[in-house]
């Protein structure tokens, strides 16, 4: 049993009136921690594309310019990282995943988001549609910085933030669920912060 460090406490606790916005085991931060599994990629926008893939084929793809021409939305959401920090009222701008998937005919039940640098994360289709997810390129009114996933990241705020893949480059349509990067190493396939689904078996 670890000795208690008397007087030590987590940096931030739940602000007044926000208790029902903070999932169990989380603390609210004013900052925006930068946590990664690898180096920050720097794909030039002239080379950047976002693709929908099925198997080995690309069924639909957008260049950066084409993405910018799609209708974009502003979303103000709370985000929750599995490492226990939460950030309230974060403001993003991006294209809804619905807008992208609406242009593709499919009957997939799951997707695997894939990113520059090789990161992947899996999600049920139902959790990236119906207004629940975006390909976000702007944060707090400014272009998304590379260290936070820019030029664009997936944003799926109702699940733990490892599902909001930084440097996202596309979605692979899948019939069955398959674990992505962190899921392979023991993290939960779904990741609902309100049920504290951090690890497999939670």
């Amino acid at each position: 049993m670890s000795p208690i460090s008397h007087g030590f406490h987590r940096r931030h606790t739940v602000p007044d009136g926000a208790a029902d916005r903070v999932p169990p085991g989380q603390y609210v931060t004013d900052g925006f921690p930068v946590l990664s599994a690898g180096p920050t990629p720097h794909t030039p926008l002239t080379e950047w594309t976002f693709s929908i893939r099925q198997g080995s084929s690309t069924v639909k793809s957008w260049t950066w310019q084409e993405l910018q021409q799609l209708p974009a939305e502003t979303a103000t959401v709370d985000i929750h990282c599995v490492t226990r920090w939460s950030k309230l009222d974060t403001e993003w701008r991006g294209v809804s995943v619905d807008t992208l998937l609406d242009q593709v005919e499919h009957d997939a039940g799951y997707i695997m988001a894939f990113s520059d640098g090789g990161y992947t994360t899996n999600l049920p289709l139902a959790d990236v549609t119906g207004g629940k997810a975006w390909v976000a390129f702007s944060f707090a009114g400014a272009p998304l910085e590379p260290e936070h996933g820019g030029p664009a990241r997936l944003l799926v705020p109702h699940l733990y933030f490892w599902k909001s893949a930084k440097w996202v480059r596309g979605l692979e349509l899948m019939d069955e669920d398959r674990p992505g990067f962190w899921e392979t190493y023991g993290y939960n396939m779904y990741g609902d912060p309100w049920k504290e689904q951090r690890y497999q078996g939670d």
Binding site: P33, L35, S36, A37, G38, P39, V82, T83, G117, G118, W162, W182, Y185, G186, Y187, Y199, Q200, G201
Partner: peptide, 30 residues
């Protein structure tokens, strides 16, 4: 080394390829 996130990742300094991934799940190291 990339640490502080959901797990610990050690990468090759030359090619950035992943060498080691370590997570801790319910008291066990993966």
């Amino acid at each position: 080394l990339y640490a502080g996130g959901p797990g610990t990742v050690i990468r090759c300094r030359r090619c950035e390829g992943v060498l080691v991934v370590i997570t801790q799940v319910r008291g066990r190291h993966c």
